[in-house]
Design a binder for these strands. Sequence first.
RNA 1: GCCCGGUUAGCUCAGUUGGUUAGAGCGUCUGGCUUACAUCCAGGAUGUCGGGGGUUCGAGUCCCUCACCGGGCACCA
Length: 888
Amino acid sequence: MTDAKSIPKAYDPVAVEKKWYGWWEEQGFFRAKIDADKSPYSIVLPPPNVTGSLHMGHALNITLQDLITRWRRMQGFDVLWLPGTDHAGIATQNVVERRLAEEGKKRTDLGREQFEKVVWEWKEQAESSILNQARRLGCSCDWSRKRFTLDEGLSRAVREVFVRLYQDDLIYRGEYLVNWCPRCTTAISDLEVEYQPAQGKLWHIRYPVEGSDDWVVVATTRPETMLGDTAIAVHPDDERYTHLVGGTVILPLMNRKIPVIADKFVDRDFGTGVVKVTPGHDPNDFEAGRRHQLPIVKVIGEDGKMTEEAGTYAGMDRYQAREKVVADLEDQELIEQIEEHLHNIGQCQRCETVIEPLVSEQWFVKAKPLAEVTVEAVKAKRTVFVPANYERVYFEWMNNIHDWCISRQLWWGHRIPAWYCGDCHQVTVARDAPQNCEHCQSESLEQETDVLDTWFSSALWPFSTMGWPDQTPDLERYYPTSTLVTGFDIIFFWVARMMMMGLRFMGDVPFRAVHINGLVRDEKGQKMSKSRGNVIDPLQIMDEYGTDAMRFTLAIMAVPGTDIPFSISRMAGYRAFCNKIWNAGRCLLLNLEDQKPVSKEEINKLQEGDQLDLGERWILSRLQKVISETNDNLEKFRFHEASNELYHFFWHEFCDWFVELAKMNFTGEDPEKKSKTCQVAIYILEENLKLLHPFIPFITEELWQQLPHSGDSLMVAPYPVVHPEWMDAEAEEQMEGFQELVTSIRTSRSENNIDPRSKISVQLVCEQKSRSFLESQCDQIKSLAHLSQVDLVPHLEAEGRRVQGVSKLADFSLILDEVVDVEADRRRLIQQIGRGEDNVRYLQKQLENSDFVNKAPEQVVAATRERHTEAVQQLEKLQEKLDGLTQP
RNA sequence: GCCCGGUUAGCUCAGUUGGUUAGAGCGUCUGGCUUACAUCCAGGAUGUCGGGGGUUCGAGUCCCUCACCGGGCACCA
């Protein structure tokens, strides 16, 4: 036990936070232990990439998961929070390549094997760095189960899934038009292409019609691709061009004869209504080409340069070729017009290079059959989205899903388990390296050099991490997971694919709930970015303000479905909250004498023995409401409401009223009262610490350890539950009256500029029915309103040196030594009367409305009546007071 | 073009099934170092809840419509 007197006045988060994490971990509190007596609760951490360090997005995501897991653990669930990292294919390869470039090296200089070794080295250090940063957040995940998407077990799962999907005809290989990044030199999926608006040009080019002097004008934004045109197309119903359909035009520059086809994909209103068809470099044209059996001419290569097929342009960069093509066309007077044209350009998500659609041999997952079942599952509420509106987004995407290009021409990732036969050239797909070709038994096999899209392995995360394809106890126990907490930006990349794979291979959804957290923005709501210079580093602010303050800020701002405008000044406010908690603890510890743990039974005894003061009954009652709402809000992922309520309860109810009242007994003469109040105070404090622990684990544990607990951790204390027998409507109502009276007296003092230091006396008058209650509270009023004396009188004396006021419970009169300016009083009374009149008028109008009286629910009408009566009484009292003032 | 958010106090935002005359934090103003806390205490001020229409006894909350600001998807020859 710490000596209370030695507790510092200001809370020092850095000193405190260092202490607990290691201890919790050593004690094994983070570790999931399968316990049949408990219900399982599981979460898998969205594995951070091994590319960089912790950012605010991680901080939010991890904080929310930690909050949930700590809460569930305290509630008595058998909790598994499984951590790990993602190899992040392209992203990591790019990072390492950039580092090599700094040394003037390329990956090809090293060779595949050596390069992979270098990436593994990088991975080891990047992983430990980011996971240590996660630890600083207080992240209570089970490190003994940490996984990596490229580790042995997960790689086995990947191969298993690949083979099974291949056998089930859900994976195929073929030549298709894919998005190609010429810088990363790999194919990427549709999702990895990001579109940026760009100002371009629309060139109108004349294509001579064969066998006539006429020409037809084609509009294009990419003239260089014309070299690969294998047709031009018009809309079948477009009468302007009907005569051309079936005919031939001459492709300028190449002097190739190409047909004119009719196809509904042509938009008659765009450009000239005639479109050049380049099946090799445009997705629409590729489809049209298939429909019309057009040949494919590939004029741009995988390095972004023109191919041999481009004739004299071969070897030029694609943009250089564009200029040359335009210049050549102009020379031949084949450019009819050049328009400015705003359009969207697809860029590589990872390197922002403009992607090039080109035809290439790749591996694909047939997505539709996999997607359909997941839509059913979400419709059946086997998985719910929070907030629910993301379900629509999910359906929309799933219902329009395209096949997923899963092969990447990279070195970092899971190498595709397919082998090509050198003899029969067929493919053998297998879990482990085969000895012979399954088609011709040849031994001349070579493995596919492509790796899988990084999302292929993360799609398996919820079950591959638990040991699948083996039937492990973890899998049995913790799958499906309870909740997934993740960002909206990876709903398609990750959530959707986990749903597909989970249902396919586990026969059940991977998670029961998906909680979508928002984006952490800067204070003004702008996206954080290096170029804006508004990036907040969580590590730095944790140093400065404390992890708890940062966590609390994130939690209280985490409104489901909205982004978080993270505010440093707000966080400073929550640091102050932590300090407040600290000092409340300090206050109680300084007053404790005989420290013993306080049980519920002891409080019960006091309660039953009628030994509790009003404030004590009240705080116990309020606590029940707070417990119930906190649990309820957490259940619904309403972190902001839960934290807001705890903040208010702790500061503005527990500290401002209960502790202030408790001080009277602490400093009073009665040792029994003191010890009783201590017990209640400690009990309430501890309940608060428990309630707050999932949000702010460090400071709560620190205070808990200073209280008598024989070394038990708060982390494993049971989360508070409601004791309905302590709900006390009478105490709450009485307390409300008490608070209003105290506040009114304080307001009067303040408005009359009465020095807060001077102790004055006050007279009170109230109705007979409240008299005994008020009598019992005189000392408390005296203390909280800073008075020297409180007298209950039959009538207030009307003399000059008075400041008068009213509250529901009692009217009061401050007795002053000097004559005060009654104008302040008058002003306030007039203001109050004004409000009172509005109030009465409003209520009266409602009650006079027969529709309201007849149609509104009875209790609403009754409540309105009651309020009306009260309002009228209050108004009369105020009026009386004002009259009293005018006639001295 | 389709879809989803948002528009509430000077700022940033809460406000679950419609029911007291709308709340918080920060900021601001007044006054206080009252021995837990100046990272504090007490008190004050501030809103036509984006515009318009509708449903209802009753709308910040439901419906329609318009405007503006975000975001997503599709198209973009």
